[in-house]
């Protein structure tokens, strides 16, 4: 898609078009694994936003110094350091969240989104652009996690709840489906794949639909321009005739 189209579409469309999970199919492993509760999704999302934004900034800074042959090890060292830092901070200040997310925090290192954005974007753009890209990618990853976890938690356990990761106190809890009517399969991996497939299909349907509309609009514009040109030519011919 062209840059001008991207700009025209605005914030929410960018979330959908450049969505790393449902649009580019990156970072799916952790998405499937941790989206059982809203809390996990938020925690993971924030961790990825922090790592992705800082890694994009650092990598856009050091990319000009890095020869091609060693760029992967350099990027991985940067990313691994950031992930370990975030992991240590989470273990210290949000121990409950750290225990439930477990290895998936460490696995952010090999999350394709991070290295993918470093390779595809940060190494060839300036610091501000890279920071914005990291933030947007992180946000849309987080939105994907939130969508998945909302569906899975509501259908799977019937309750939607959020707790403070620092103190583990419940902030709110709301039962939407009466006890006994939940669909527990949504808390399992099967449910994760089902939810993922449905959401990915919806996103893809929206994109197709939107692209058709955009193509139609572009064609109409081109036709109108042609008509106008014809009319102008005709008018000019008339003027010439009259003269």
């Amino acid at each position: 898609m062209s840059e001008s189209n991207e700009k025209k579409r605005g914030f929410w469309s960018e979330m959908i078009y450049n969505n790393p999970v449902f649009g580019l199919y990156l970072g799916i492993c952790s998405t499937l694994a941790i989206t059982t509760t809203l809390n996990n999704a938020l925690g993971m999302g924030v961790a990825v936003i922090v790592v992705l934004t800082i890694s994009n900034i650092v990598i856009s800074l050091i990319a000009p110094l890095t020869p091609d042959e060693i760029h992967i090890p350099v990027y991985i060292v940067v990313i691994a350091t950031l992930v370990t830092l975030v992991g240590m901070l989470m273990q210290a200040y949000t121990p409950e969240l750290y225990t439930t997310l477990g290895t998936f925090i460490d696995l952010i290192v090999v999350n394709c989104i991070i290295l993918g954005r470093a390779e595809a974007y940060a190494c060839s753009h300036n610091v501000a652009e890279s920071a914005r890209d990291g933030l947007m990618m992180g946000l849309s990853y987080t939105f994907s996690l939130l969508a998945m976890s909302l569906i899975r938690q509501i259908l799977g356990s019937g309750v939607i709840e959020l707790s403070n990761p620092m103190t583990n106190q419940l902030i709110f809890s709301l039962r939407l489906i009466p006890e006994g009517f939940e669909i527990p399969v949504f808390t399992t991996q099967t449910g994760a794949f089902l939810t993922f497939a449905i959401l990915a299909a919806l996103v893809s349907a929206y994109k197709l639909n939107n692209e058709k509309k955009e193509a139609a609009a572009a064609k109409a514009k081109a036709d109108a321009a042609k008509e106008a040109a014809k009319a102008a030519a005709a008018a000019a011919a008339k003027v010439k005739e009259a003269a």
Binding site: I62, L65, T66, P67, I70, P73, V74, V77, V78, A80, T81, T84, L85, M88, L89, Q91, A92, Y93, P95
Partner: peptide, 25 residues
């Protein structure tokens, strides 16, 4: 040299944060 310097910086950073968070953990 580039990789060495980068690793040294990262190591220092990790050591610093670890010293900060280890007692809390």
């Amino acid at each position: 040299v580039l990789l060495g310097v980068l690793c040294a910086i990262c190591g220092l950073l990790l050591g610093g944060v670890n010293a900060l968070t280890a007692p809390i953990i």
